[in-house]
Design a protein around this nucleic acid. Structure first.
Length: 607
DNA sequence: GCCGTTTTCGGCCCGACTGTTTTCAGTCG
């Protein structure tokens, strides 16, 4: 049977999905025989998923086998795939396994073996496999197959029913709020001596799947009992002697791990991950004859023979001590992605990452000054915002309302509006700032200007002249080709007054992908022409995304931080932008808003 | 199938939890 496959573009996501399916297929066919081949395919899938460049571009440059995890054989097959749209070898591995199997694997709790057993025992359709399995579970037919039972049948039904509603990830800020709520509940139990977040939350990932928490305690059972009694829980998934899982409203899963305070550092390290960081770390340790786990570090017998239980376990109260024992510098959670951090730690070259206390100003704020924009105006007054910035200890800030709408104003009206705003900001600087502020010394008059589809700006030169500097950003025509969009952005950045490219991908997390640009060109242009890329701290944006920040900083790009606040409380979102910068290996000297007022004015060529 | 601070051959991370079992397989993080 030949079915017409949808035309694939072979994005990294699609390629890594294919490689994962190949690993699953090998597992189904003969897990024992293929044991290490499976690992190889899984590693390759992870490498592709985490690659900052598109694999297809890497292939075009002929550097496919330079990607760690992709060797001679896979290079050959991927090449065939990119050239012809298919690979004979891959198809052979997948042959005989109905596509429905790979759909079922996406369900939590269902792996390759279970999925395949279901698909082959019943005639599960490729068109709506989930509905088919749901029906079978409802009719009580699944429990009769060998290896299944009443419990697993019920579990499968519940999983499928919850799947669609819960497949959404959470914004980091939202997950952090929920986590704090639960940690406050856990702390009420006095036996919990220390609590922390774990997993992607602790690493500061922009979107979160589920919430992982840690507790140090001498009485694990007492703490776990208390945890599963969290008032808002909707379900207890499991409860053992070392961990428990509950579900809270919204279908959010919360896992809690407990550990004796003497080994708490090991636990934090283990469950903070990432998985790939841990795998790389354990491989590194093993070469030194050390075996790592959430309990500590075990010295293996000479010769590397593992005799579990016969060797003394070295325990660690702190993560710093754990890494030190391995001969490594401490690695901040934000860097633990197996992206070169272990090598850096070996050489003592972990960067001194930017911290929230380094920030001296916010360079994207929308006040309620009515500039007659077609976008959204802020709701707080300039005075309120300045006082808020002062309470944060900032030295400066910039008002960056959207430009006046072009459709409803003629050129002269736009110039008049901008002159009025210039005047308002000048008055604030001469009086309000001097008399009411402790730390704020200057308010910049700026503007967030739309980049029109053709790369022009909807503000005339005389309007631009009223500004200290301008931000530019994309708010329309998101579907241009990469080449076209790049040209569009570069021509906007060429205006001398334009200093900052704001929320560069224009993505909206969990909602909109954002634009695709030729990033190498953008980065090179910014370095050469002293333009700054914004790291937007709005929790739904977090844009530039962390992986592009890392790429940009490695090429010498400098950054600006802005919260994109539309009300005073929004200024507190700076922490999220800083987290993204940290995940991108950014040090404070690479960030505009950590510099002194003098330095900022020089960098922005204001004086 | 990949890879190199013991190795181009011989290795390849570690443990908890659940359900269906009576010593283990599958899944997860």
């Amino acid at each position: 049977m030949i079915t017409r496959m949808p035309q694939k573009e072979w994005t990294n996501r699609e390629v890594s999905g294919l490689l994962e399916n190949l690993a699953a297929a090998l597992q189904i066919k003969d897990a024992a025989k293929n044991k290490f081949r499976i690992i190889a395919y899984e590693n390759a899938a992870a490498a592709v998923e985490h690659s900052t460049s598109e694999l297809k571009d890497i292939w075009e440059e002929g550097k496919l086998d330079a990607v760690p995890g992709i060797g001679e054989s896979m290079t050959q097959h991927l090449e065939e795939l990119f050239k012809t749209g298919r690979s004979k070898h891959f198809e052979e591995i997948l042959s005989g396994i109905p596509p429905a199997t790979f759909e079922l694997i996406k369900l939590p709790g269902i792996g390759p073996k279970t999925a395949h057993k279901l698909v082959t025992n019943f005639k599960i359709s490729d068109t709506h496999p989930l509905e088919d399995v749901k029906k079978l579970a409802r009719e009580g037919k699944i429990k009769d197959i060998e290896g299944f039972g009443e419990e697993s049948q019920k579990e499968i039904l519940e999983t499928i029913e919850a799947y669609k509603a819960d497949s959404q990830r959470l914004l980091y800020s939202y997950a952090l709020e929920r986590a704090s709520e639960i940690l406050n509940w856990v702390k009420q139990q006095k036996e919990a001596t220390r609590v922390d977040t774990l997993g992607s939350l602790r690493r500061g990932v922009s979107t979160i799947g589920d919430i992982d928490l840690a507790v140090a305690t001498k009485s694990p059972q007492v703490v776990l009992d208390h945890f599963v009694n969290f008032p808002k829980k909707t379900k207890v998934i499991e409860k053992g002697s070392a961990s428990a899982s509950i579900v809270i409203p919204g279908g959010i899963q919360v896992d809690l791990m407990v550990q004796d305070p003497a080994s708490y550092g090991s636990l934090l390290q283990h469950f903070t991950g990432s998985k790939h960081h841990n795998i790389a770390l354990r491989e590194y340790a093993l070469k030194k004859g050390l075996s790592l786990s959430e309990y500590g570090i075990r010295n293996l017998a000479p010769g590397g023979v593992k005799k579990v239980g016969t060797q003394k376990m070295e325990k660690f109260e702190t993560e710093a001590a754990f890494y030190k024992y391995l001969g490594l510098e401490y690695i901040p959670p934000e860097l633990r992605e197996d992206a070169g951090e272990i090598e850096a730690a070996k050489e003592g070259k972990i960067p001194n990452l930017i911290e929230i206390s380094d920030v001296k100003g916010d360079f994207q704020i929308h006040s309620d000054f009515d500039i007659e924009t077609s976008h959204d105006l802020g709701v707080s007054s300039m005075e309120e915002i300045i006082l808020k910035a002062d309470s944060l200890g900032y030295e400066y800030l910039a008002f960056t309302e959207h430009n006046p709408s072009k459709g409803e104003h003629n050129v002269n009206q736009i110039i008049d509006l901008l002159k009025a705003k210039r005047e308002a900001v000048d008055v604030l600087n001469y009086s309000f700032v001097k008399t009411k502020c402790k730390s704020v010394k200057k308010v910049f008059n700026s503007l967030e200007i739309d980049i029109l589809p053709n790369g022009e700006l909807p503000v005339p030169e005389e309007g631009l002249a009223t500004l200290d500097f301008a931000l530019v950003s994309v708010h329309s025509s998101f579907r241009q080709s990469r080449v076209e969009a790049t040209k569009r952005v570069l021509s906007a950045l060429a205006y001398p007054k334009v200093k900052i490219f704001a929320h560069p991908t224009a993505r909206k997390l969990l909602n909109r992908e954002g634009i695709d640009l030729e990033w190498e060109k953008i980065f090179a242009y910014c370095v050469k022409n002293k333009k700054f890329l914004e790291i937007n701290g709005d929790p739904a944006r977090l844009d530039l995304p962390d992986f592009l920040v890392k790429e940009a900083q490695s090429r010498g790009v400098q950054f600006s931080l802005g919260t994109d606040s539309h009300y005073v409380g929004g200024l507190d979102n700076m922490q999220f932008g800083v987290l993204v910068a940290r995940r991108g290996w950014v040090t404070k000297d690479k960030v505009l808003c950590t510099q002194s007022l003098d330095a900022v004015e020089k960098l922005l060529e204001i004086r």
